Simulated assay, not measured.
Amino acid sequence: MTVIVVGASSFIAKALQALPTTAHWSFLDGRAALTAGNHFEGVTCLINCAFNAELKNEPYDASRDIDLLLAQRLSDYPRARYLMLSSRMVYGPSGADGRLHELLLPQPINLYGKAKLQSEHALRHLLGERLTVLRLSNICGYELQEGRRSFFAMASQSLVQHGRIVLDMSPFIERDFLPVETLAHWLAQITLKLQPGTFNLGAGNGVATGRIAQWLIEGFGSGELLINNLREHDAFWLDIEAAREAFAIPGVAPAELRAYCHALGQRLLHSKEAR
């Protein structure tokens, strides 16, 4: 199988490049992939990690949709499959139990979720059975890179710079967090048994954000947790039963996430000491 990954400098693509199993894959920058050339000749699977950040702040515009532009180019290669990395944001708010599953009617409330949903629709129309859509949970990892604004990124940056993590919501809010290294391993596994359809991909359970902060601080060896707002905001977890059945995805248990956060906290400490 010949796999090409677009968006080589992205958070997820870098984790993919670190795997020994992807040594024979090709990694392209998003702009290069959209230029003229036979980039996709002989490709059996394309994974796109690139996204135009303008679609997070402005209404959807097909000319800025990298997924759609790539899929249009891939239409000339009928044997190639497309693996789209979508987002849990397409669902919108979860219900009382926090569960998000593929049979729900998507009702995105932010521009990012709306853009991803329109991409999904456009790619299904264009590629049909050649498309696999993965709706990802909150992807986390070592995120001290400039520009990262995820929960883990802001918590990590604050812990390193100020010795504290500040939550603007209840610490009891549970969210689904998936380590980027685990995601990369699963993506490599999924390319070997691609199936058309839409699948959630996450830990398969929610963990309290206060626990995440606690575990990062424990790994870091010091620090404090401050709560400046007790609002109940954006609790969710992804039901991954469809992905379990299709791709043998095991999920991530809370104990595994705790060990991951401890190791990440230690890495953050080493990063601070090295400065």
Results as ranks from 00 to 15, higher is better:
4 I>D: 03
6 V>A: 11
6 V>H: 11
11 F>K: 02
18 A>C: 13
18 A>N: 14
30 G>I: 02
31 R>W: 02
36 A>K: 10
37 G>R: 14
38 N>D: 14
40 F>L: 10
43 V>G: 09
43 V>M: 15
45 C>L: 04
45 C>P: 06
47 I>E: 01
52 N>K: 11
55 L>P: 00
55 L>Y: 01
60 Y>N: 03
60 Y>E: 01
61 D>P: 00
62 A>R: 13
63 S>W: 03
67 D>E: 11
71 A>H: 08
71 A>E: 02
72 Q>I: 07
84 M>Q: 15
86 S>Q: 11
86 S>L: 12
89 M>S: 14
90 V>L: 06
104 L>W: 04
105 L>Y: 02
107 Q>H: 10
108 P>Q: 05
109 I>T: 15
109 I>A: 08
110 N>E: 13
111 L>C: 05
112 Y>V: 00
115 A>W: 08
124 R>S: 10
130 R>L: 07
131 L>G: 10
132 T>N: 10
139 I>F: 10
141 G>V: 07
142 Y>C: 04
143 E>C: 12
144 L>S: 08
145 Q>N: 08
150 S>V: 02
151 F>D: 00
156 S>G: 14
162 H>F: 12
162 H>Q: 14
167 L>F: 11
168 D>Q: 14
176 D>L: 12
176 D>N: 13
178 L>A: 05
178 L>I: 09
181 E>F: 05
182 T>C: 05
184 A>W: 09
187 L>P: 00
191 T>M: 03
204 G>Q: 08
206 G>R: 11
207 V>P: 02
208 A>E: 09
208 A>F: 06
216 L>Q: 01
218 E>G: 04
219 G>Q: 06
219 G>L: 09
220 F>G: 01
225 L>W: 03
225 L>K: 06
228 N>K: 11
229 N>I: 02
230 L>W: 08
232 E>C: 01
233 H>Q: 12
234 D>E: 13
238 L>D: 01
240 I>T: 07
242 A>M: 02
243 A>V: 03
244 R>F: 03
255 A>W: 06
258 R>L: 11
260 Y>S: 06
265 G>T: 05
266 Q>C: 13
267 R>I: 01
273 E>N: 11
274 A>L: 14
